[in-house]
């Protein structure tokens, strides 16, 4: 049955080469932990992506209950955390996953650095990876404010002070992020928009570039 459906579509659109391109590729022996256990260090990039997928899914579900408004944000988080079935789990996934994604990304960066994989011809992929790093930090920063509790509020105040310390442009950057002169209603909606729409869009575009490049160039050779 499923095979018939697949064949029916494949006859018309010729999709087999597309998913072959995406999924069907050799894993060299030196990066396969089944051959050399120490090759597990090559898994961190994939783990980063895996957790990123979890972040996107859990985040999508969180927005079913969350409202980015200074009066209701905290209450909506408290409600989804305490009243909604599995709310604690879903929010927990997003909360802990946020830290884990940074950890995995850091380990991945270390692996790339110490295996020298950033060298020619893969310099551009290193640069894209660094951009992903900064987008991830931005996601962490903007997501931190959303629960609108004391920790979120004061952490954001301090971060905006850091933005403020940029030479010349600091005050403008701060006010732009803040959406006004104080951390308030407009800061929360702004951070929400950046966290949920702007940065994920940038992240996905960068990830596509990262993956296309690794497929074009292949995994770097053994040490």
């Amino acid at each position: 049955m499923l095979k018939n459906v697949y064949n029916w579509i494949d006859e018309r659109l010729d999709i087999t080469p597309i998913w072959r391109d995406v999924a069907d590729h050799e894993v060299p022996e030196h990066v396969n932990p089944a051959h050399h256990f120490s090759a597990f260090v090559y898994c961190f990039g994939g783990l980063t992506f895996f957790i990123t997928v979890i972040q996107i899914l859990s985040g999508m579900f969180l927005t079913m209950y969350y409202v980015p408004d200074i009066i209701n944000a905290y209450n909506s988080v408290e409600y989804l955390q305490t009243q909604v079935a599995f709310g604690q789990i879903v929010r927990g996934m997003h909360h802990w996953g946020a830290s884990l994604v940074i950890v995995m990304m850091f380990l991945h960066t270390m692996r790339v650095f110490f295996t020298g994989s950033y060298k020619a011809p893969r310099e551009m992929n290193w640069v894209v990876g660094m951009l992903i790093f900064f987008v991830m930090l931005g996601l962490g920063l903007t997501g931190y404010l959303l629960p609108w509790d004391n920790k979120a509020y004061f952490a954001t105040k301090v971060t905006l002070e850091i933005a403020n310390s940029v030479p010349w442009l600091g005050p403008i950057i701060k006010e732009l992020l803040q959406g006004g002169t104080i951390v308030g209603a407009e800061t929360l909606t702004r951070f929400f928009a950046i966290h949920v729409f702007f940065l994920p869009a940038v992240l996905l575009a960068l990830l596509v570039g990262h993956f296309i490049m690794i497929r074009r160039q292949g995994i770097s050779g053994p040490l």
């Binding site: 200074i70 009066i71 959406g179 006004g180 104080i182 308030g184 209603a185 407009e186 909606t189």
Partner: peptide, 11 residues
């Protein structure tokens, strides 16, 4: 007294 977007509040 402060104006915060669509809210009036006191800081």
């Amino acid at each position: 007294k402060q104006q915060d977007g669509w809210y009036n509040s006191t800081a």
